[in-house]
Amino acid sequence: MITTVVGSYPVVKKEETFFDKVKKVFGLYDEYKYAIEKAVIDQVNAGIDIISEGQVRGDMIEIFTNKMYGFDGKRVIGKIEFIEPITVKDVLYAKNIAKKLNPKVEVKGIITGPCTISSSVRVENYYTDNRDENLIYDIAKALRKEVEELKKYVSIIQIDEPILSTGLYDFDIARKAIDIIVKDLNIKFAMHVCGNVYNIIEELNKFNVDILDHEFASNRKNLDILESIKKKVGFGCVNTKVKSVESVDEIKSLIEEGLEILKNNENLNKNLFENILIDPDCGMRLLPIDVAFNKLKNMVKATKLIKSEFSSLL
């Protein structure tokens, strides 16, 4: 059972020194560099196997719309096109820090999905509205180019599509958009969809991804999908909506409950531990830094306990 994160981490900024302020005057100061360092160090120290760069530069929409042609903030003012790599620089920085702390740690690439970006912007030009197929596909084409750059440096790429749990977007269009991003690329893809997904699992099973990642701590009803899911499972087991830290026993109990249900899944029950990734329910950006760290630490401890107990039975 590999441990990972969904993506975002609390943003911590250091107090600016005199030299930082001088750098800022010349446009050389990166106010988010320290936040990336903190996110990486905390994730590695917590024992996470596949970390993120923390997604510290804004919300999951702005990180991408701020760097694509055709957007002005969250306003669509023209045809959407890729300009330059968006997250690669931060991924490389995170990877360099992580390797110094633990050479075995890997870094994942994370992009926000085309339907979720489309749903979060105001269309003022070129497209009809934020459900226009052409808008969704053009965003997907731009993200494809981002992924082509990212894949050189990461072991897995996660596509965040939380909007799919709302039913607001057509699944056929969403699948075509994901295909644009992932087709013929030799790397594993995960798709994260938070919220209640127990009514749409058959639709999600049809997506061309290797892993479906969902919330199980804050949405216990989602446990129902584990008998019918056809992809590897990203198992969200700590609630990122609450500021209390779950105990190791609480997390362990939930993971064990999930594993018991997965034993009934004919597609996944042969290699249970290889078919499940352990992670938080969602991003942790809004949590206090100590809470986020301790949630991750307890999650890793719970996972190690389960693996240890399983090994002792062999």
Rank of each mutant, 00 (worst) to 15 (best):
T3I: 09
T3E: 01
T3G: 01
G7K: 03
F18P: 00
G27E: 02
G27N: 06
Y29L: 07
D30T: 09
K33I: 09
K33H: 10
Y34I: 08
K38V: 15
I41N: 02
Q43R: 03
V44T: 04
G47H: 10
D49Y: 03
I51W: 01
S52R: 11
Q55S: 08
Q55I: 05
R57Q: 04
G58N: 11
D59P: 01
M60Q: 15
F64D: 03
F64I: 14
T65M: 01
T65Q: 12
K74D: 03
K79G: 11
E81Y: 00
P85E: 11
I86G: 10
T87V: 15
D90Q: 04
A94I: 05
A94H: 14
N96C: 11
K100T: 08
N102A: 10
G109Y: 15
G109S: 00
I110H: 01
T112Y: 02
G113E: 04
T116R: 00
T116A: 10
S118Y: 03
S119Y: 05
S119Q: 05
S120I: 06
V123R: 06
V123T: 01
E124R: 08
Y127H: 07
T128F: 11
R131L: 13
R131T: 15
N134L: 05
D138N: 08
D138V: 02
I139R: 00
K145F: 07
K145S: 06
V147E: 04
E149H: 14
L150A: 10
L150R: 11
K152T: 02
I156K: 08
Q158S: 07
E161V: 15
P162M: 11
I163A: 05
L164A: 14
S165M: 12
L168H: 07
Y169S: 04
Y169A: 04
D170L: 08
D172L: 03
I173Y: 02
A174H: 05
R175N: 09
K176M: 11
D179T: 09
I180E: 09
I181Q: 01
I181E: 03
L185R: 13
N186C: 11
M191I: 10
V193F: 05
G195E: 12
E203F: 12
L204P: 02
K206D: 05
D213N: 12
E215Q: 09
S218E: 03
K221A: 15
L223N: 07
L226F: 07
S228M: 05
I229N: 01
K230L: 12
K231C: 03
K232E: 12
F235S: 04
N239G: 08
T240P: 12
V242N: 01
K243C: 14
K243D: 14
E246Q: 10
S247Y: 11
S253P: 05
L254C: 10
E256G: 15
L259M: 07
L262S: 02
K263F: 06
N265K: 09
N267E: 09
L268H: 04
N275D: 01
I278K: 13
D281F: 03
C282L: 13
C282P: 15
M284T: 02
L287E: 06
V291W: 00
A292E: 03
K295F: 10
K301T: 14
I306K: 00
K307E: 10
